[in-house]
């Protein structure tokens, strides 16, 4: 907890969640480096800290390459061989996930924490989808085949694919994108995990299907108090379901706060710029937007290979000060429920 010590304004609880005493996942100072060659190392995640409370939906917002997926993978020890966790801790229900061995991790994955991938090719093309869901259940429960099958059918019914044998015994290629996405969700929810990491589950679905999937995830939270870490690059998608938003930029969480506060009063210049990029509802009906240029953030995110001193957003920032190039800001807590990493707020 160096962050807390470095800044007196930030009390010892330098995190935000519904109830600080009750957390499901607590990540502190997580740092991940990629090593391409000997001596060519670069930092992909830089001292990430956050908490997730039971039943909370936390949105992780950021552009591609900002480290969203790496965050998700590092929680479950699924990082590629070139990556290494160099610092930090991940505590889940009081256990340190980073110190578990592969066998212990296998018991956590799918049963207590599960992942919904963006890529639907995670389904086995030569196995019936019903069996693929049953397989997850049997991997974690010492149940008979019949009981696992019944449980899988119950999961199918819950996600709106039940009632017919046709989908249960279909192969992935026989289903539409929306149906396949639901199968992947069924796999993730089959063992009733406490935390689901959803990595852009609706990115490739069309609007109507994606609305159904989001609706289903929200209902699931109500039903079984499942917590979600929902990763997306689209603020509008997160606005429909998240309780709290964490904004990621260049491997750091630059802002963290409740959905409504963060969207109406963004603190970090990056959050503000990103929300300005989002097409507004008024643009639909108001003809004055016709042919008008969209707001966008000039430049592109920094290359992780070139580490410059100072804040990683300074070259694109509207509110840049001289001090921004000199040192990297620390995380500060301007109000009870919000965290920001910017020198403007004294970081």
């Amino acid at each position: 907890m160096e962050v807390a010590r470095a800044n007196p304004a930030c009390t010892k609880k330098c995190h935000v969640s519904g109830d600080p005493a009750r957390y499901l996942l607590r990540v502190r100072d997580l740092t991940v480096q990629f090593c391409l060659d000997v001596g060519r190392e670069f930092t992909v995640l830089d001292t990430i800290s956050f908490d997730i409370a039971p039943g909370e939906i936390v949105g992780l917002l950021g552009e591609s390459g900002s480290g969203k997926t790496t965050t998700a993978l590092s929680l479950l020890g699924l990082l590629p061989p070139a990556a290494r966790v160099t610092n930090g801790s991940v505590r889940f229900r009081g256990r340190d996930l980073l110190s578990l061995n592969e066998n212990q991790l296998r018991e956590v994955r799918g049963a207590e924490i599960s992942v919904i991938c963006q890529d639907l090719s995670v389904l086995n093309p030569v196995m019936r989808v019903g069996d693929q869901v049953t397989e997850v259940i049997r991997a974690h429960r010492r149940w008979t085949a019949r009981r696992a099958h019944e449980e899988a059918e119950a999961v199918f019914a819950a996600i709106g694919l039940g009632g017919s044998d046709r989908i249960y015994s279909a192969y992935p290629h026989q289903l539409s994108g929306g149906q396949r996405q639901r199968i992947v969700i069924a796999q993730a929810l089959a063992c009733k995990p406490a935390l689901v990491i959803a990595d852009e589950p609706t990115a490739w679905l069309d609007a109507t299907t994606s609305a159904e999937v989001l609706d289903f995830l929200k209902r699931q939270r109500k039903l079984s108090d499942t917590a979600f870490l929902f990763i997306s690059h689209d603020p509008a998608t997160l606005a429909t379901l998240a309780d709290r938003i964490m904004v990621m930029y260049a491997g750091q969480i630059v802002e963290n706060g409740p959905l409504h506060d963060l969207y109406t009063q963004p603190l970090h210049p990056y959050t503000r710029a990103l929300l300005q990029c989002a097409p507004q509802q008024s643009a639909r009906t108001d003809s004055k937007y016709r042919g008008r240029r969209l707001a966008c953030i000039p430049g592109s995110p920094p290359d992780p290979m070139e580490v410059l001193p100072g804040c990683s957003f300074s070259s694109r920032c509207k509110d840049r000060m001289d001090a921004c190039d000199a040192r990297s800001p620390e995380q500060v807590q301007p109000s009870a429920s919000r965290l920001v990493r910017c020198l403007k707020y004294g970081g």
């Binding site: 109507t208 994606s210 509008a236 606005a239 969207y263 300005q276 509802q281």
Partner: peptide, 26 residues
Amino acid sequence: FAHPQHPHTQALLASMPVLKLAYSAH
């Protein structure tokens, strides 16, 4: 957007996530 006629258009519009609580900095 104001008067969608066809039921499918209405469904399509209803399912679009929009930023309603948008930071009005346009």
